[in-house]
Structure formats: C-alpha cells, structure tokens
Write a protein that binds this DNA or RNA. Structure first.
Lengths: 122, 122
DNA sequence: CAGTATCCAAAGGGATACTG
DNA sequence: CAGTATCCCTTTGGATACTG
C-alpha cells in the first residue's frame, strides 16, 4: 500500500475516534435519532422513545450531548415546566448518518434477527 | 403530528436500536473502520489502528462482529499463523456510514476540540 | 414534568502472564 | 502471531425514592 494512502488511513482513523468519543455508548445515537425524527422532543418523550433507558441515564447522556454542542436544551415556561431538546446545526449534520443507520438496521433485521426468529431462537 | 408519521418514527426508532445492538460500544465502529479502510486487516494491525484497545477487548469485539455477520475471519497458513479479517457484504454496506462519520469527526474537531485547544484546555 | 440522590449488583475493561 | 486466562479495580446503570 502507498505511503500516502497509509497516512490518509491514519487520519481517517483519528477522525472516526473523534466521532466515537461523542457518539459511543448504548444510548447516544438513539437519543439523537429520537430528537431528529421528531424535530423537537421533550424529556419524557425521549424516555419513551428509547426503549430501556432510565431517567438517570437519559439525564446524563443529554448533558454530554449538550456539552458537545450536538443538542440544545430549552426550558419552556409552562406549568409544570417543560424542557425541549433540539439538534444544533452540528447535530443536524448527523442526519445522513441516522438515515443510513435506520436503513442498515432494517437490513440487519432481515439478515440476522429475521433468520433466528424463523428458528424460534428469540 | 400525523398518526402515520408517528408510526413511521416508531419503526425508525426500532431500526436504529437494531443497528446499535450490533454497533454500540467504544470500539466496534473503530474496528470496522480499520478493516474497511485497509480492506483486509490482521489482528495485530487492528490492535495498532484502534488506539487504546487491549487484545482481550479486541478479541471479544471481533467475535461479536463475526457472530453478527459483519466480518469474516480467515486463518492463513503462514508460520506463525496469520488471521485476516474482512468485511462481509453486509459489513461493506456500512461503508457510507463510516465515510460520513469520518467527515463528521473532522468537522467535530474543528467545532469543539479545536476551539478548546486554542484555549489550551487539552 | 424534569430531573436528582442514593444504594448496590453486575459488567467493563486494564495489566500481566501464558499458550499453540 | 493470535489469541486465552486470571486478577482485580473501576465504571455502568437499574431500582427506588425524592424535589421544585
């Protein structure tokens, strides 16, 4: 392999790791997706969308995403208060990735989960 | 919001969660990326590419990816033996996502990491 | 509603050493 | 080279209860 190509690959690996520092974990992508699909989303809505997450975890993950400027948090002056989460421009640039992951998930279900369901494994 | 749209969003959320069941964690995407960028990759090469991973973790993660039919494992008859990992067709369909994540990582560095480096925080 | 606080079990994962 | 095995500390995260 050419040396130039090799250098390029190393740069790419670094970029991937930068992305994953922000997005890794069981929940982050699902949370971002919830906000992305609905455009605006409240705390309890996300809690419902993301199957299995606890309020403690959701709270923690949302803070991290806010720190990384992926989402914004807005307190609405209702009674009781409501908090709305939205994607920043930076967060919105993840939309393509989310759409691709959605398509891949459907394909994956056909490829793996589907075939094991036929065998009654799940 | 329309009821149809709402149903569609729930389907999408399920698909995202199917994807994340396979891809979540600190290392999976980086491992797949390493194999993807280089086309074929040996155990020790991946160990070098993915900064910070231990051989124990790499071994575990590779097994899971093989189980999920994302990669294949081929033992080459060299002395000492070499093991080559490659993406399956199913795994190759992640290429677009990997390219997008690479671009996003570069943008993210400019957006967040870059600005804190200017302040000498890191 | 949108979180926080606390307890605590389970899993994650690093370091090191070892094997075919 | 490509892993496995073991030790053991750290982090994760569920359950439950509580607050403004």
């Amino acid at each position: 392999m050419e040396e130039n190509q090799c250098l390029q690959n190393k740069k790419n690996m670094m970029a991937i790791q930068d992305s994953m520092d922000v997005l890794y974990g069981k929940w982050k992508i699902s949370i971002i997706s919830s906000i992305c699909f609905y455009n605006k989303r409240r705390f309890s809505d996300i809690l419902n969308d993301v199957v299995g997450i606890s309020n403690k975890m959701l709270s923690k993950e949302l803070k991290e995403l806010e720190t990384n400027k992926v989402i914004t948090r807005t307190v609405l002056d209702t009674h009781p208060i409501t908090v709305q989460y939205q994607l920043t421009e930076h967060g919105k640039s993840l939309q393509t990735i989310i759409n691709n992951l959605t398509d891949w998930g459907i394909k994956h279900r056909l490829e793996i989960i589907g075939s094991s369901e036929l065998l009654n494994i799940n």
